[in-house]
Design a protein around this nucleic acid. Structure first.
Lengths: 149, 149
DNA sequence: CTGTATCCGACGTGATACTG
DNA sequence: CAGTATCACGTCGGATACAG
């Protein structure tokens, strides 16, 4: 029973930002449920998002323009940068400021909310960095005894 | 039949745990790259994973058996629980203990590494919980001014 | 420069059936 | 009970072309 969303419309796959970004099914059991858990999950999914954290980290220092970020990241496509920024904007984590000049200029900047999120995310990132050897070692060990046991 | 997909190639889609769980492309630019960034990203992707965090949180209190967890989560399929647990095991975050009884019994338990990860994850979760209203408000506001101006 | 629209392959996820 | 195998299907994400 995959939740019936509002309406499964014609697969608007373009640059719109409609999905909740994670489809949390029906967690009905005992303790790990409720709307709270669902809301938390949707935030966590943003953290796990391929680009969002990277974008947030880049914006900590100072606001940036679209192509500045695109260049800094390097591997990202225009489409995904747009989608990522729209998602962050929708969640109130970044602001989008358009300067009606020619050529157009758009600045993206972290909100206070976004800066707040950056803190626990950085803590997590630091943990990941510090324990990187253990995790990679565990992976190799697992793959070895499991791949050619 | 709008999109006949005859190209359905036989992927190894079963319960193997091969991918690095995130496919970080070629980040070659200036500062947000290198193997470090890649490793951190793979950990973050696990946090963003649909079920991993939920499983970790459940295991904090005490070890659990396969079907105990399945029942507690409720919405998860057997396959995804298996895949999630295998991924966590591969990363050295949980241990898998088989008791060769009949019927078989398998306990899953957090490692020290897993318990360590739980801390920053909980901090992040708490942030998400506390700021849930702001995020949801921002989403509604965004959708309103963007969906029906 | 800053996007938006579209095509298409790859991957994630659930449902189901089967095994030890 | 604890998985594994297979299939179906939706979504993600890159490449490309086009627009303001």
């Amino acid at each position: 029973m995959t939740k019936p969303r509002k309406n499964a419309q014609i697969l608007d796959q373009s640059t719109s930002v409609k999905s909740e970004h994670i489809r949390v099914p029906a967690l009905q059991p005992n303790e790990h449920q409720g709307p709270d858990c669902r809301a938390v999950a949707s935030v966590l999914s943003r953290v796990g998002d391929k680009w969002s954290v990277l974008v947030i980290m880049m914006l900590i220092d100072k606001p940036l323009r679209f192509n500045e970020m695109k260049r800094m990241i390097g591997g990202i496509s225009q489409r995904m940068l747009t989608l990522t920024l729209r998602g962050l904007e929708r969640d109130g984590l970044v602001t989008r400021t358009v300067f009606p000049t020619i050529p157009p200029r758009v600045d993206y900047e972290l909100t206070d909310l976004g800066r707040g999120l950056a803190l626990p995310v950085k803590a997590l990132g630091q943990w990941a960095f510090e324990h990187r050897p253990e995790i990679e070692g565990a992976r190799e060990a697992f793959d070895t005894r499991n791949g050619k046991g």
